[in-house]
């Protein structure tokens, strides 16, 4: 069975923290262009989604951030998604980065993100608008 590619040498990642957030990871945009994860801009996501056949960009506003009952290493982030303001909660490691429109990578604990991933990161706050994806309506 195919397995996920290994993280870069030297990277020791906690479970649930994907390897592509490590600084220097190579990301392929929809037009084939390659960029480092730390160099991605809002426009890269928007333009990639425009090219995509089945995905489109949606905006997800952070409505609440609270500690997880499961572990102090996790946070629960509640988003209001899209024009219909659908409520979505995700439980993530506090260092898990989200991409904020016009701002870049942000996490609940940017110091840990920078420490573990070396990814430049700002503090994720209530009111931030993150990039999310939704499926285009296929007819």
């Amino acid at each position: 069975a195919p397995s996920a590619p290994p993280p870069p040498p030297g990277a020791v990642l906690p479970p649930s923290l994907p390897p592509y957030f490590v600084k220097g990871s190579i990301i392929q945009l929809a037009d084939g262009e390659l960029k480092r994860v730390e160099d991605l801009k809002t426009e890269d996501f928007i333009q990639s989604a425009e090219i995509s056949n089945d995905l489109k960009i949606d905006s997800s506003t952070v409505e609440r951030i609270e500690g997880s009952h499961t572990s102090p290493n996790f946070a629960v982030v509640q988003f209001s998604v899209g024009e219909h303001r659908a409520q979505v909660s995700v439980e993530v490691l506090v260092e898990y980065p989200f991409f904020v429109f016009g701002q870049g990578w942000s996490s609940c604990c940017p110091d840990r993100t920078t420490q573990i991933l070396e990814l430049p990161c700002t503090k994720l706050s209530v009111g931030d608008v993150c990039i999310s994806l939704t499926l285009k309506n296929l007819k």
């Binding site: 994907p18 390897p19 990871s25 990301i27 392929q28 990639s48 995905l55």
Partner: peptide, 25 residues
């Protein structure tokens, strides 16, 4: 001889942590 190591390349959409719920009419 040292074989060149292949660098993993990740698709852009893998960086977005979830798919928003789709809206039905």
């Amino acid at each position: 001889n040292v074989e060149p190591r292949s660098v993993p390349v990740f698709p852009w959409h893998s960086l977005v942590p979830f798919l928003a719920p789709t809206q039905s009419d």
